[in-house]
């Protein structure tokens, strides 16, 4: 039956979706770029963490810490060398290029790791549970949710309390005037994608520990992230969390009613929110 338990599970699941979505939301908010390879980058991050764990025997959390700067550098380079060239008045080139990147990444991962599904082992953490009084929940979903909150708080602090965040917002408002301030938009965009890849690393860590993954699974996971970003209101990080939670709760409630309805219920919730609020729950004032 649908009880508090179901709702709490759904909320926690929403944390995972918010993690998937936060990097997407960040990049879109700053440069209006929809990265269709986002899901594949998460999968790639999961493989990177898996390699580090396998080769060095590191605990997955430490492995993610090692992977983070590599992922940042990769994001920086990707933006600098490829994506910046696609930005402009026309929104089609970035879509085409990131779509191509998505396919290329999937093929590269397939070459490197075969189609077998893998998982990052988290040892006892996988089955540990915590008693929250009214409900008992898994430690892993709880950690995921807490990490999503931490990521959003961190990104908001970066956005609203640092010079880099100020540059992010200025460039997003008006790149030409930002360049008159001595800011190079291409550089700021590269930093933004680098930061987004840090978030991707966190998402990849939980993604890889919580379920099996294979090279082709990225786009399917990306759907939830897209839905979370869109119903949250484009560019709003707390909105993205709210969006993730709505989809997560819809899925667990749907599954409680009829296990076959889990995925469908999430998509229906997405459509319902858009029917009522076409611009999402927390649309940005300036667009």
């Amino acid at each position: 039956m649908i009880g508090v338990d179901t709702i709490v599970q759904g909320v926690l699941l929403g944390g995972l979706y918010a993690l998937f979505a936060a990097g997407l939301s960040l990049v879109f908010g700053i440069m209006r770029l929809v990265n269709l390879a986002h899901g594949d980058l998460i999968v790639m991050g999961a493989y990177l963490i898996l390699i580090l764990v396998t080769l060095s025997g590191l605990n997955p959390f430490l492995a993610a810490l090692v992977a983070a700067p590599l992922m940042f550098g990769l994001g920086w380079g990707l933006q600098r060398l490829v994506l910046n060239r696609t930005l402009g008045k026309d929104i089609l080139p970035p879509l085409l290029v990131t779509f191509g990147l998505s396919i290329a990444l999937q093929n590269a991962l397939l070459e490197g790791f075969s189609a077998d599904s893998r998982k990052i082992s988290a040892g006892g953490l996988e089955t540990a549970s915590a008693d929250l009084g009214i409900v008992t929940v898994g430690v892993m979903p709880l950690l995921t949710f807490a990490s999503a909150i931490a990521v959003i708080v961190g990104l908001n602090a970066l956005f609203y309390r640092t010079a880099l965040g100020r540059a992010f917002r200025a460039v997003s408002d008006d790149p030409v005037t930002a360049s008159l301030m001595g800011i190079r938009p291409a550089h700021v965009f590269a930093m933004a994608t680098g930061v987004a890849m840090l978030v991707v690393t966190v998402a990849a860590l939980y993604f890889g520990m919580r379920a099996n993954f294979d090279p082709a699974i990225g786009p399917a996971r990306l759907i939830y992230a897209f839905e979370a970003v869109i119903i949250g209101g484009l560019g709003s990080l707390w909105g993205t969390l709210a969006g993730g939670i709505i989809i997560g709760v819809a899925q667990t409630v749907g599954a409680a009613v009829n296990p076959e309805w889990q995925i469908l219920a999430g998509h229906v919730a997405f459509l319902l929110v858009l029917l009522v609020r076409p611009r999402g729950l927390f649309p940005r004032a300036v667009d």
Partner: peptide, 9 residues
């Protein structure tokens, strides 16, 4: 912030 950004680089 508009003022600060003028001198941040």
């Amino acid at each position: 912030e508009n003022l600060l950004i003028g001198g941040q680089t």
